[in-house]
């Protein structure tokens, strides 16, 4: 894989210093990185999962709505942020790779380079009240 854009490299570095769980995906939705706080939510270390294609991570964490129905992939905030190039927010439940269910609020936004090129998207997670 070629070198990431400097904006994405710096975002990853910033994410590695923050206590908020953060996901970074590329323009195709491939998961490039998640930080240690996100590892705690998802139940698996990034070094163990590595980069994951969108259809893989979107189903691995089993996002479900409050009524127990699966959240369609195209309704996930990261996917919407990429598709619409606009921030997206929602809440859902996930079952992490460790098998634990968690209630999450998620805000995602696209990463537009200074030249207007879409470089990917970032999602910030908060653990919501059960």
């Amino acid at each position: 894989m070629g070198q990431q854009g400097i904006e994405v490299i710096l975002l990853r570095q910033l994410a590695s210093y923050l206590s908020m769980p953060i996901f970074i995906v590329d323009p195709t939705g491939t998961l490039l990185y998640y930080n240690e706080p996100a590892e705690a939510l998802l139940g698996q270390r990034f070094e163990e999962t590595g980069a994951m294609a969108q259809d893989e991570w979107a189903t691995s964490f089993r996002p479900i709505s409050g009524d127990g129905t699966p959240v369609p992939e195209d309704q996930l905030p990261l996917v919407r942020a990429l598709a619409d190039r606009h921030p997206a927010h929602t809440s859902f439940w996930i079952e992490g790779l460790d098998g634990v269910r968690r209630h999450l609020s998620v805000t995602a936004f696209p990463i537009d380079s200074q030249s207007g090129r879409l470089l990917g998207a970032v999602a910030l997670f908060w653990e919501a009240a059960p």
Binding site: M1, G2, Q3, Q4, I6, I9, L10, R12, Q13, S16
Partner: peptide, 13 residues
Amino acid sequence: AWGNGPGSPEWTS
């Protein structure tokens, strides 16, 4: 943009 030294080429400015 390094942690404890340069990482993979993909993540090296």
